[in-house]
């Protein structure tokens, strides 16, 4: 991993942290479990013509920060996050944000939308890839399985679904809520090509997003830690609670020490 990306990753995480702190906004946990993957995807994997859908819309801030790191969102725009008269609500709108094509936030929609984009690309003879980032709890939505079935049947091999498997959802651990610690065997049983990777390793994520080998959609399970580097790392509190000023400063220090690429 190059030093510049490493620096940018830390810078972006700090900016993400500040966004949440300034806005007194929750949902930090899911943002910090996927920021490494979002940065790897947008800086190291995706080409300009590729498509991305943030199905786990509650991680909007991580996407906004990533787009900021790419120069596609301004510093001024980030300061409006979840404020009045903003283009950056807590769950993203499909209007006015570079590269975003849909309004997401109600879980389970992204895989179908992504399948539609992939089908359109194939019909039009484009080689573009479609990436869709989901949460693990999101796969309790039946729509995800409808979409997976469809994508496998249609052999949409340019479709990559990433699942942020941090093991925590809104009101409990996924293994306690729905008896599911690992989605891999279930998704493999549906016929997709399943891969697993450390979701905090940008280089590993980049490698794992190589083309599929069987002409099928690829599902990449990201093994992540909810609220990584925050004081409430891997705890339910990270799903909702905003940061106090003291926690904010502690998190800044932790990110500066640990937050770069592995």
């Amino acid at each position: 991993m190059n030093n510049r990306f490493d620096e940018l990753l830390i810078e972006t995480k700090l900016r993400l942290l500040q966004m949440h702190h300034d806005a007194k906004s929750g949902h930090l946990g899911g943002n910090f479990s996927c920021i490494d993957a979002l940065m790897a995807l947008h800086h190291l994997v995706m080409a300009e013509e590729d498509r991305f859908i943030l199905s786990k819309g509650h991680s909007a801030a991580a996407l906004y920060a990533t787009l900021w790191s790419l120069g596609k969102l301004s510093e001024e725009a980030l300061t409006t996050f979840t404020r009045d008269d903003s283009l950056l609500p807590g769950h993203p709108s499909g209007a006015g944000i570079p590269g975003l094509q849909f309004s997401t936030g109600s879980l389970g929609h992204g895989p179908s939308l992504a399948a539609g984009l992939a089908l359109a690309a194939r019909h039009m003879g484009h080689s573009r890839r479609v990436f869709c980032l989901c949460s693990d709890g999101e796969w309790q939505e039946g729509g995800c399985w409808e979409a997976l079935t469809f994508a496998v049947h249609q052999r949409l091999d340019k479709l990559f679904i990433l699942i942020d498997q941090n093991g925590l959802q809104g009101f409990g651990r996924t293994m306690d809520v729905i008896s599911c610690e690992d989605l891999s065997p279930r998704i493999a049983a549906f016929g997709a090509e399943v891969r697993r990777v450390d979701g905090h390793d940008p280089q590993g994520i980049t490698r794992a997003l190589s083309p599929g080998e069987h002409g099928l959609p690829v599902v990449l399970i990201l093994e992540t830690i909810k609220g990584k580097d925050l004081h409430f790392e891997n705890s339910l509190e990270s799903h909702y609670l905003p940061l106090t000023p003291e926690q904010y400063l502690a998190a800044r220090n932790a990110i500066m020490q640990n937050g770069g690429a592995r």
Partner: peptide, 20 residues
């Protein structure tokens, strides 16, 4: 495309196609 008995997916796929 016969999208099967999965109307939620069908409309989502339609949105993806229409977006292109």
């Amino acid at each position: 495309v016969n999208a099967g008995v999965a109307e939620q997916n069908m409309v989502g796929v339609a949105a993806g196609l229409a977006r292109e």
